[in-house]
Amino acid sequence: MSYSIVDLCVNCHACFDVCPNDAIYKASTQFMINKNKCTECVGDHEDAQCASICPIEGAILTPAGEPANPAGSLTGIPPQKLREVMAEIQAR
């Protein structure tokens, strides 16, 4: 099984630099994970390295397809609050 990166990726390279398996590569618009190379870091590290350094909530999915870093878990901004403020800005 493998972690994966979705199009929320902002191309910051952080995961690319820390992957112990060189499983991460730069695709045309974002970084991707080579399923055949990803080991979920088992044997190398306690935690999946890409998911431990990625700054963008929702950008990396676990092998089960769940966000490794769900909304609010990295920024500390409650998701409901973020929605309210964004709606307010859109309404200006």
């Binding site: 910051c12 952080a14 690319f16 630099d17 350094i53 700054p55 963008i56 990295l74 920024t75 500390g76």
Partner: peptide, 14 residues
């Protein structure tokens, strides 16, 4: 230098 190793509350990487 795109990568960062910390998060600051005044920064948004997006």
């Amino acid at each position: 230098a795109p990568a960062c190793n910390i998060q600051c509350h005044y920064c948004n990487r997006k």
